[in-house]
Design a protein around this nucleic acid. Structure first.
Length: 437
RNA sequence: UCCUCGGUAGCUCAAUGGUAGAGCAUUCGGCUGUUAACCGAAGGGUUGUAGGUUCGAAUCCUACCCGGGGAGCCA
């Protein structure tokens, strides 16, 4: 029987009627005196097995019947189509090899019952085995694949940017200082954008994808201290090109997740009708218009300030897809934004705000390409010219209009999955008061 | 950093200032189609820590520790 095929739960449907081997962990066990229903998980799915006492050696049946949650085992048995099973198939057990049996004295702590968030977060390394976390991990993987495919298929070259950086992209207040390098203060990156601009001048269309660190004392369900961001940057591009790219990317991600991760969305009980409508063109509005709309809806926002979280939710209200807001006051944006030619007090930046209260998932725009303007901005923002010398070079040697954006992976995954907290969108979230495991 | 809520059995939670309890988990017994399986029984507690008020504190007061949510900031 050892020569029967070793299969994964995901592909079990191809082996109907055949005897196969399945290796995994005991997810749950229901049993009576003469029949037992062990549910196995193997990282590709969940499958209920059926062990009938009368059809098995006494020792095999008893070993299985007395098995504990999350013990590791290999089961040999016959695949059978079963209309009562959630996945359509079951496995009739013939042989069992137990690799490790978890003793009753020190059982697996995460039972199929309810647990509090503190308890689960302390056991994040085990919590990942749960069905819900399994589904989220697979959707995150699909989102990332969709992102890479989108850029790869549209002529972008991946050029990853450094994580140790000598200067801030947007001010030093939220940077993590690294005390190691001699002669120089070095920080953990909060964006690869500045390097991306250099890369775009070399390769035209580029993107980087990696971790980002923000030393913000944020303590909300929308913030992580360490998160992943994908950042495209294009040479010879305007604000309109950036908006079109952002829209195309988001549509492509949503379509891909709907196409390939139906099972996982179902596990999460995600209302997919709210994703089906996410198609271009997205509603577009200027910051001016957005402020008027918000004031009309009772927000206390005033022109010249940034949106709060409730403002973002209000803005997308009544829309079944993300909303793009552009042309923000220069005052509240980073130093590198190109000003609007007609109204220099506005920056050619754009934010993409996801519906259902998920807020800003993309922020970007057109960058300054004029040398003198950039020098002026560096001065206004009191940024050290020396650290930005190489960045200034880009405006000295063949400067062109260019732009791009950053998209937060965890916020996007949260939106796709319908999560109510960012911490579930990454395997090991790093937050203000949580750095373990 | 500020505001706010919370900490009781392994877990999730109850308990008017007056004998600390339930469900689940665990152990034992029963059950051949269970879907968070079910039924019966048993064991399981320094009520986050330190102090105070009181005849008496899980409960009221003070300080501290730990965590949840939110604000600002941002993806």
């Amino acid at each position: 029987m050892n020569d029967c095929p070793r299969v994964s739960i995901k592909s079990i449907g191809h082996y109907d009627g055949q005897t196969v081997r399945l290796s995994g962990w005991l997810y749950n066990l229901r049993r009576s005196g003469k029949i037992a229903f062990p549910i196995l998980r193997d990282g590709t799915g969940f499958l209920q097995c059926v062990a009938v006492k009368a059809e098995l050696p006494e020792s095999t049946f008893e070993a299985l019947r007395e098995l504990t949650q999350e013990s590791s085992l290999t089961v040999t048995g016959k695949v059978r189509a079963e209309s009562r099973a959630p996945g359509g198939y079951e496995l009739d057990v013939q042989e069992v090899t137990i690799h490790q049996r978890i003793p009753e004295e020190d059982p697996y702590p995460i039972t199929p019952k309810e647990h509090g968030i503190d308890f689960l977060m302390d056991r994040r390394h085990l919590w990942l085995r749960s069905k819900r976390q399994f589904a989220i991990a697979r959707i995150r993987h699909e989102v990332i694949r969709a992102v890479r495919d989108f850029f790869d298929d549209n002529g972008f070259t991946l050029v990853d940017c450094p994580i140790f950086t000598p200067a801030a992209c947007e001010g030093t207040s939220t940077l993590f200082e690294v005390d190691y390098f001699e002669d120089e203060k070095v920080y953990l990156t909060q964006s690869g954008q500045l390097y991306n601009e250099a890369n775009a001048m070399a390769l035209g269309k580029v993107y980087c994808f990696g971790p980002t660190f923000r030393a913000e004392k944020s303590k909300t369900r929308r913030h992580l201290t360490e998160f992943w961001m994908v950042e495209p940057e294009m040479a010879y591009a305007t604000l309109e090109d950036v908006k079109e790219l952002a829209e195309g990317l988001v549509c492509s991600i949503v379509a891909r997740v709907l196409d390939r991760r139906r099972e996982e969305l179902k596990i999460l009980e995600r209302d997919t009708s709210k994703l089906e409508t996410v198609k271009g063109p997205f509603p577009r509005m200027s910051y001016d218009e957005a402020v008027k709309i918000l004031q009309g809806k009772g927000s206390t926002i005033e022109w010249g300030t940034d949106f709060g979280n409730t403002d973002e939710t209000l803005l997308t209200e009544g829309y079944d897809r993300p909303v793009m807001v552009d042309r923000y006051p220069t005052e509240i944006k980073a130093f590198y934004f190109e000003p609007d030619a007609d109204r220099p007090e506005l920056a050619l930046g754009v934010d993409l705000i996801a519906p259902e209260g998920y807020g800003e998932i993309i922020g970007g725009g057109q960058r300054i390409h004029d040398l003198n303007l950039l020098l002026k901005r560096l001065e206004e923002h009191k940024l050290p010219r020396e650290a930005f010398e190489w960045y200034v070079d880009l405006r000295k040697f063949g400067a062109v209009p260019h732009g791009g954006f950053g998209m937060g992976i965890e916020r996007t995954v949260s939106w796709m999955c319908g999560l109510d907290h960012l911490r579930e969108a990454i395997a090991y979230p790093r937050m203000l008061y949580r750095t373990r495991p």
